[in-house]
């Protein structure tokens, strides 16, 4: 049912904007093409920033560093009723969206939809964004090189999100 909302939201918004445009006598075809012109330059502008961050994170993933961190943190985190299988996701969440989704699919397949680890991971994945990706794309598109405190805030919020996910899930699902 809830999926219906997200299915209809998009076409509804588009129709609404076009209708209001026509009613207000905006030359919608001319304005559309005028606005769309920028699409190319914005997408091309972010390439150098994307290359920097995605190459860095791909190398980090390939090096097995995340597994090493996960092994290192496991004894500590299992004390807080955190299942071992969900630890890699917590580390990957801020770094790589595709890796996180891949890990989540793997866990869901391995443990089944009813496992506590699957549900905890589902909440972690669903409630957050890939901080590094968002920052590099958004800042990259306008050529910002000094992020100031943006990364720190993003990572702190991710950390709070994970803590909240662990608390809320252990309260609802355990």
């Amino acid at each position: 049912m809830i999926n219906i909302l997200s299915l209809y939201a998009l076409p509804f918004i588009i129709v609404l904007i076009l209708t209001i445009g026509i009613v207000k006598k905006v030359p919608i075809y001319e304005e559309f093409t005028e606005g769309a012109k920028d699409g190319f330059s914005v997408a091309i502008n972010i390439i150098p920033y994307l290359v920097a961050i995605i190459v860095g994170i791909s190398m980090f993933r390939a090096s097995g560093a995340m597994d090493s961190i996960a092994t290192f943190l496991t004894p500590l985190l299992t004390k807080f009723t955190i299942p071992v299988d969900s630890i890699p996701i917590m580390i990957t969440r801020s770094l790589s969206g595709s890796a996180t989704l891949g890990l989540f699919t793997e866990i869901a397949h391995k443990l089944g939809p009813d496992a506590y680890a699957t549900k905890l991971c589902a909440v972690i994945v669903g409630s957050s964004e890939t901080t590094f990706y968002v920052l590099s794309v958004y800042f990259g598109s306008i050529g910002i090189k000094k992020f100031r405190y943006a990364l720190l805030v993003g990572l702190l919020a991710d950390f709070i999100g994970i803590v909240a996910a662990v608390l809320v899930c252990s309260w609802i699902f355990l």
Binding site: I17, G21, I28, G35, K37, G39, A43
Partner: peptide
């Protein structure tokens, strides 16, 4: 991103011109 960027920037331009 190019295509979808262009599409939404076009739609957003209409939304702006219409005062939305």
């Amino acid at each position: 991103l190019i295509g979808i960027m262009a599409f939404w920037l076009g739609i957003m331009r209409i939304a702006e011109k219409a005062g939305l």
